[in-house]
């Protein structure tokens, strides 16, 4: 199984641990990745909020490059995935737009590829059975609240044919590695997304609600698959605690980090030490890591 890999900008900065852990898990499960040649930023919210054409042209540049590699695209970032998938579909369905965009980006682009999110590839292409067979240390007794956020569950065009109000992809993956996914109501609430810098108060309020609900449902950790959700939920926990007047302190972990842990992959490649709320105490308490001392 081989895919064209779109790492996304966060893979080189705040979300590097997500990309590294995803690469490690995919490799262990026999998925090959070929990085898209000279990929560019998908433009995210700033592009689609300011210019419709730009929001199509930026993902189109990377997709056109992948078309040359004749491989379906795999991406880990929920935002990149949603942008790439929407653009691919829009261009495929609209010949006039296809011609216009191809002219703008100086390259022929047909919208011919499938754009897959890493959760889809793992749960559907690799398959839950294959994952179960690869588990060495089942994460028994680890209660996880799987948090999907907005971009993985909404935007009809970008849907991963999972239920939009109560998705199960992450829950199934966590179940496959032996953890205990919780039935909780805030799976698809919004964390505040790209308002981090401009409307920080809104982000703190929304993130605090999610964290508090996870805590009330007895979660040991929040499991995410989006670098922006991770950043918002992780970095503003002190402010969220102040707002709610209670101690939260819930590690916000990427699902691939836990999968890698269950598969006994090299801890260095899983980068668990890069999270702000340290997941090590709870992981050590449950007996999944030994003698680790982190900041």
């Amino acid at each position: 199984m081989k895919f064209a890999y779109y790492p996304g900008c966060s893979s080189e900065g705040s979300g590097a641990e997500y990309a590294r852990a995803s690469e490690a898990v995919l490799e262990a499960l026999g998925v090959e990745l070929e990085e898209i040649d000279d990929w560019v930023c998908c433009g995210a919210t700033p592009a689609h909020a300011t210019s419709h054409l730009l929001s199509i042209a930026l993902p189109a540049i990377s997709c056109a490059s992948a078309e040359k590699q004749s491989l379906d695209i795999l991406t880990c970032c929920a935002c990149c995935h949603s942008r790439l998938k929407q653009v691919n579909q829009e261009v495929r369905d609209d010949p006039a737009l296809r011609a216009k965009i191809s002219e703008i980006i100086e390259e022929d682009y047909r919208g011919s590829l499938n754009i897959l999110h890493v959760t889809e590839v793992l749960a559907r292409e690799v398959g839950l059975e294959a994952i179960k067979a690869r588990v060495r240390t089942p994460l028994k007794g680890l209660k996880v609240a799987c948090y999907y956020g907005c971009l993985m569950s909404r935007m009809p065009e970008a849907l991963m044919s999972d239920k939009s109000e109560y998705p199960m992809l992450l829950d199934n993956l966590m179940d496959a590695v032996g953890a205990e996914p919780l039935d909780w109501p805030y799976k698809t609430e919004c964390c505040g997304a790209a308002l981090t810098l401009t409307q920080t108060k809104t982000v703190i309020r929304l993130s605090a609600d999610v964290l508090q609900m996870a805590k009330q449902n007895g979660a040991d950790m929040l499991v995410v698959a989006c670098p922006l959700c991770q950043a918002n939920l992780d970095i503003y926990q002190a402010e969220a605690e102040k707002l709610k007047g209670e101690r939260l302190s819930i590690p916000v972990v990427y699902f691939v980090q836990l999968m890698g842990l269950a598969m006994d992959l090299d801890p260095k490649r899983l980068c668990l030490d890069r999270l702000i709320v340290d997941p090590m105490p709870i992981l050590a308490q449950k007996g999944f890591v030994h003698g680790a001392v982190y900041l």
């Binding site: 909020a49 907005c150 909404r154 009809p156 698809t188 505040g192 401009t198």
Partner: peptide, 11 residues
């Protein structure tokens, strides 16, 4: 400006 673009409304 407070819209986070989450898309719940669309859905």
């Amino acid at each position: 400006w407070h819209c986070a673009g989450c898309g719940t409304c669309n859905g």
